[in-house]
Design a binder for these strands. Structure first.
Lengths: 144, 144
DNA sequence: GGTGCCTTCTTTCCGTTGGAGAGTAGCCGC
DNA sequence: GCGGCTACTCTCCAACGGAAAGAAGGCACC
């Protein structure tokens, strides 16, 4: 287990990819993980493997289509493993991989950020909206 | 500056919001920050304020429409401040707020994750695609 | 003094994505 | 053999995203 080597390699790899550029594959990868469904699915799977129906219940807001689609993409990208058990009705379990595990902490923090800073955002929106209503049309108000 | 109080309040707030539910406002907030443009814009602004044209150059992949639209949403949500200077051609600067600053570290890590784990994802995709090509049609293969 | 250029958007067109809800497949119990 | 269960899959339509042209406001050039 070359821990230092792996870290050094990751650093070198980060230098060779640039998510700012559309033609860089890391841009596309960033777009895929920057999805609310990926964030919520990773957070839900952080506690351990779950079945399709478990995930559906854990995340009531996701449609079956998006649930399947997101899980497929995540499986292809190596974030989750899909295990089919040919039981009475077929049973499918989803579990984080090591790669998924390296991302789950980050995405859980993103979800937590959204939940814990909701009130700050509310206040900012209220302020913005009242400011926008006060200014008639002109956008050229310097507010320093 | 009630640091402890603010942290305790954030924790309480996180408990009262649940991003898993579509009707919860934090779900919508998560959807907004889970955008590649928000991630890239925060990362670009982490080093300091930038003008509209600077951002456009820093992130060549973003269209003007999405740049403006994303910045407006981020401004409304209190992540950035927009400062208009009535100069020769009008000059607009964007800068992180304290709230934006509390998110920027996280989102920079997400961007870095995408860049540093690109090769792992590539390998996973190659493996997935070859497996998919090998399996004729049946999805019911238990691979464990 | 009109043409052109600069920045920062705004609008339009249209292809892609996402959500709601119904349909499908395989199997078992009744 | 009919309904019910799980895990999808399909269809329809609305919303989002990208490309490119337009717009406002002002100076500079000739």
């Amino acid at each position: 287990m070359p821990t230092l080597t792996a870290a050094a390699r990751r650093e070198r790899e980060r230098d060779s990819y640039n998510a700012y550029l559309a033609e860089c594959p890391s841009h596309n990868l960033l777009a895929q993980i920057s999805s609310k469904w990926v964030t919520l699915l990773l957070a839900a799977l952080s506690a351990g493997p779950l079945r399709y129906s478990d995930l559906s219940r854990a995340i009531p807001s996701v449609s079956q289509k998006m649930l399947t689609q997101s899980l497929r993409t995540m499986e292809r990208d190596g974030l989750v493993v899909r295990t089919v058990t040919a039981a009475v009705p077929v049973r499918v379990d989803y579990e984080l991989t090591a790669l998924g595990g390296s991302l789950v902490g980050l995405m859980t923090q993103v979800k937590d950020w959204a939940e814990s800073h909701m009130d700050n955002v509310y206040e900012a929106r209220r302020e913005y909206d009242s400011r926008a209503a006060a200014e008639p049309v002109a956008t050229l108000n310097k507010r320093g």
